[in-house]
Design a protein around this nucleic acid. Structure first.
Length: 885
RNA sequence: GGGUGAUUAGCUCAGUUGGUUAGAGCGUCACAUUGACAUUGUGAAGGUCACUGGUUCGAAUCCAGUAUCACCCACCA
């Protein structure tokens, strides 16, 4: 391809879709064509198929794709399996809103079946859109294997687990206090409830003691629940109340008799030390009620209004009832006082409605069942380091969470999701069956008959499963465990990458289910990304409008730039800030790479280099230097990627590519040509960059191989480069760079016109003096030196010259009449002081017997060398200062 | 009430087995159009690594405590 056909700047728009389509057409995302025995497997987290991708998704995909492409290039049979989640409650909430806004209908207007179909269609549409977004970022996932959590095959396996767990006594049905969302009209697990500290009040209510004219005052933040009180509890050791234990109170407003009981769970320092007990509407009260055989009176119903048990308040909303109750209590003189009190308001995670704790019949997972303890097995696996965590500390957080895990409510009274695979025989209900077929029939598919009485009159449980019940099984359900070939090859998986907010919701569930169902941890490495925040560090949210639209950024800067901005400068588990300037800087780098490509391309054409050489054949010191650096960087980058540190790997690569290859080697190449080395290094760099920036690297690669049917994407990862490098030459060249930098700095310091040519002198025979002589042309071009004089070693230093020293080598710049020597003396004085300070610190260290004794010998030796060098430099400096006088 | 993370240059952040005279990008300032790139190049300024102790020959790095910020968890009514 002709260089002038290649645009001056990289135009991402022009390449991205085209290249992605080519990769896909050629089946490069599918592992099947790779015959390797080694494999790399990553089941991608399925985003909720009810909206669009946000920058956080893109951040995760970038990391997943970097590792995926890296492993693929290393020759492994690589599978990135994509999918979408049906996201039970969330999707139902989203869709119900849409239904109301667009057609003013509720789900009940449609009916269960029609509603389900409509939501399914909606999710399919959203999934299509989101898939297009995933492709835009360059995700190298195998779309032919894409799964949805409600796919029949996936569902079947989810339900199988339910049945198995029921048989093992892990899943049970029971009446317990649960979190109820009145808006969603469903039960929620503890983790789906969010708590926000809100200003509230603590009300002190006087409960009369029967036949005494005295009172016990209780404190509560939710006075309306008093309607369902069935006791007042105090701590048994609380001397204030010892005499009252066992006495009877008259519950105001309801005029019901309730006992005073003693329980150790009461904190006598809070409020009055006497607590009203409402077993039906408070988790702790429920426990206490159970132990004391108290009645649980449900006074708040599922619509958050007062039930018929609430006497004269029946039918009122909770809010109205509270007002009226307080008013009535005050009127009766029973409201002692009210204090300001911060309360933790419980809200539904999805719709923010205030949660009402109520007693309800639900399905639960006993996380610590006798036959199999999900909790204990998981903790065991974590303690034995069966999973590598990135970052490490997340492991302890998960252990701690599992340690405190209570039973998990898995039934939801919604329509969108996996329906619970349980049937009830209606013959019993109707009194047609005298047999004991009251027990639920638990089976993956609908049984034709009741196994006890043979009736055909069966009815399925109305509830659906918690979304996390199915997504917790994702790694093996998506792979078709246990019978599929894929699950045999790709399970257990290598890597799982997710936002750190999913540690408890998802990672811990996958571990529990994976161990239970497959006896293996579902993944070997668990990597957490941080949250993507805005420039000010605020959480991005729709309502605040501070979100970054990934598609807009891709359009503006290109997918590679966005990927780079998301990955560089981040650490696993730590949040990152995202904003235009950052992406712009990354875009500039993609352009830099593109332009190095243009230069290399021009070289190839001009010099008719046909192929990138297998052996670069280094000739001059610059060649040895760049190749030795390449070898180092290649090793470091590989190691960093293997250690799950993509950010550091990217930084290393960027610094080398820009700061060493482009700024030095390419410039040198304009002077001393070795096309083979130039092409060789660049081609390796393209490969190393490919996982980070798949598009621009492939684009450049394609301009090199316009006719070939090869792709950078499936090139081999460079590893263990066997290069014949002369390390002495490499080091020598490093010195050349150092000297040129010093000359440039001096030039800038004295504001010497860059166009002014300088004259150098160098003493013949001084160590390394040939560095200058042999690289004459490089100095001329890169340091703007017109001539170099070689003088005798014994000659006095040239007068009216500046001296530049680099290590053991001195270079004199003739500057007669150009600069102010007084200023130079001052500058050197400053330098001398710094040097002296440095030397004294080294001396102190080396004079310390303990250091000599205890530090490793090579460290001591290194310090010794530093001191020698510094002393030499200091004495030279002093000589030079004297010369200037 | 418990737990986690953060605190390093004006800003955003690196710094993984403790051994550099503490780094990068952006921004700032000065200069520059040399065969790719102004989405560029060259150079400079800028930091007692939050604080206080401890361990160590040696601490930004390990330990303890303190402060500030952020997040997570928890049945204190």
């Amino acid at each position: 391809m002709d260089t002038h056909q290649i645009s001056k700047t990289y135009n991402a728009q022009e390449w991205e879709d085209k290249l992605y389509a080519k990769w896909e057409e050629n089946g490069l995302f599918q592992p099947d064509t790779c015959q390797s025995q080694k494999r790399y497997s990553n089941i991608l987290p399925p985003p909720n198929a009810n909206g669009e991708l946000h920058i956080g998704h893109i951040s995760g995909y970038t990391v997943m794709d970097i590792f995926g492409r890296f492993e693929r290039m290393k020759g492994k049979k690589t599978l990135l399996l994509p999918g979408k989640d049906h996201a039970g409650i969330q999707t139902q909430v989203v869709f119900e809103k849409k239904l109301r806004a667009e057609k003013n209908l509720t789900r009940r207007d449609l009916g269960r079946e029609k509603f389900y179909d409509a939501v399914y269609a909606f999710c399919t549409e959203r999934a299509n859109y989101m898939r297009a977004q995933e492709k835009k970022i360059g995700l190298s996932a195998d779309w032919s294997r894409e799964k949805f959590t409600l796919d029949p095959e996936v569902s079947r396996r989810v339900l199988e687990t339910f049945v198995q767990m029921y048989k093992d006594g892990i899943i049970y049905r029971g009446k317990r206090i649960i979190n109820w969302c009145p808006r969603c009209a469903t039960a929620l697990s503890d983790i789906e409830v969010i708590r926000t500290e809100t200003a509230g009040k603590l009300y002190f209510i006087k409960y009369p003691i029967k036949n005494s004219g005295q009172f016990v005052t209780v404190a509560t933040t939710r006075p309306e629940t008093m309607l369902g009180d069935t006791a007042v509890a105090v701590h048994p050791d609380d001397t204030r109340y010892t005499d009252l234990i066992g006495k009877t109170l008259i519950l105001p407003l309801q005029n019901r008799e309730i006992p005073i009981i003693a329980d150790r769970r009461i904190d006598s320092t809070f409020g009055t030390g006497a607590v009203k007990i409402t077993p039906a509407h408070d988790p702790l009260d429920w426990e206490i009620g159970k132990d004391h055989s108290l009645d649980a009176l449900q006074v708040i119903d599922e619509k958050a209004s007062i039930s018929s048990l609430g006497g004269m308040y029946a039918g009122l909303s909770v809010k109205d009832a509270r007002k009226k109750i307080l008013y009535d209590l005050a009127r009766l003189g029973l409201l002692e006082k009210e204090n300001d009190h911060a309360i933790n308001l419980s809200q539904c995670e999805r719709c923010k409605t205030t949660i009402e704790p109520l007693v309800s019949e639900q399905w639960f997972i006993n996380v610590d069942a006798p036959k199999y303890s999900l909790k204990k097995k998981s903790i065991e696996a974590l303690r034995s380091n069966a999973i590598a965590f990135h970052p490490e500390n997340m492991r302890d957080q998960m252990i701690h969470w599992l340690d405190n895990l209570h039973d998990w409510c898995i039934s939801r009274q919604i329509w969108w999701g996996h329906r619970i695979p349980v049937w009830y025989c209606l013959a019993y209900d109707k009194g047609q069956c005298q047999l004991k077929c009251k027990d639920p029939i638990v089976s993956v598919s609908r049984p034709s008959l009741c196994p006890i009485c043979g009736s055909e009159d069966l009815k399925q449980d109305e509830d659906t499963l918690d979304t996390w019940f199915s997504s917790g099984q994702w790694p093996y359900t998506a792979l078709g465990y246990p019978e599929s070939d894929d699950s045999k090859i790709f399970y257990p998986t290598d890597t799982m990458i997710m936002g750190r907010d999913l540690l408890f919701f998802w990672a811990s569930r996958m571990l529990m289910f994976g161990l239970y169902r497959t006896r293996e941890t579902p993944f070997r490495h668990l990597y957490f990304t941080g949250l993507v925040r805005d420039k000010e560090g605020q959480k991005m949210s729709k309502s605040q409008g501070n979100g970054i639209d990934p598609l807009a950024m891709i359009e503006k800067y290109g997918a590679d730039a966005l990927r780079m901005a998301l990955v560089i400068g981040g650490t696993p588990g730590n949040d990152i800030r995202m904003y235009d300037e950052k992406i712009e800087a990354a875009r500039n780098f993609t352009n830099k790479l593109w332009n190095i490509g243009r230069y290399v391309n021009a070289t190839i054409i001009k010099n008719q280099v046909s192929e990138v050489p297998a052996n670069p054949e280094p000739k001059n010191p610059a060649d040895h230097w760049i190749l030795s650096r390449l070898q180092e960087v290649n090793g470091e980058v590989t190691r960093l990627l293997e250690n799950y540190q993509p950010s550091l790997a990217g930084e290393k690569l960027r610094d080398f590519t820009w700061g060493e290859f482009a700024d030095w080697y390419v410039e040198i190449h304009k002077i001393t040509k070795n096309d083979k080395v130039l092409c060789y290094v660049f081609e390796i760099l393209l490969k190393l960059w490919h996982p980070f920036m798949p598009f621009v690297t492939e684009a450049v690669y394609q301009t090199f191989h316009p006719d070939a049917k090869t792709f950078l994407m499936i090139e081999n990862w460079p590893d263990n480069l066997a290069l014949e490098i002369n390390s002495a030459d490499a080091n020598r060249f490093q010195s050349v760079i150092g000297i040129i930098q010093k000359i440039r700095a001096t030039r800038a310091f004295y504001k010497i016109n860059p166009t002014q040519q300088l004259s150098l002198s160098i003493k013949e025979g001084v160590r390394e003096w040939t560095l200058i002589r042999d690289n004459n042309e490089i100095f001329q071009r890169l340091a703007r030196v017109s001539d170099i004089h070689v003088i005798n070693l014994t000659d006095p230093a040239p007068e009216k010259s500046l001296r530049i020293s680099f290590g053991v080598l001195d270079v004199y710049i003739k500057l007669e009449g150009v600069i102010d020597f007084k200023a130079e003396q001052e500058r050197l004085g400053k330098e001398k002081k710094e040097k002296e300070k440095y030397i004294s610190s080294l001396k102190t260290k080396l004079e310390n017997e303990n250091f000599i004794e205890r530090a490793k010998p090579d460290i001591v030796q290194a310090e010794q060398m530093k001191l020698e060098e510094a002393c030499k430099q200091l004495s030279d400096l002093e000589q030079h200062i004297a010369l200037l006088r």
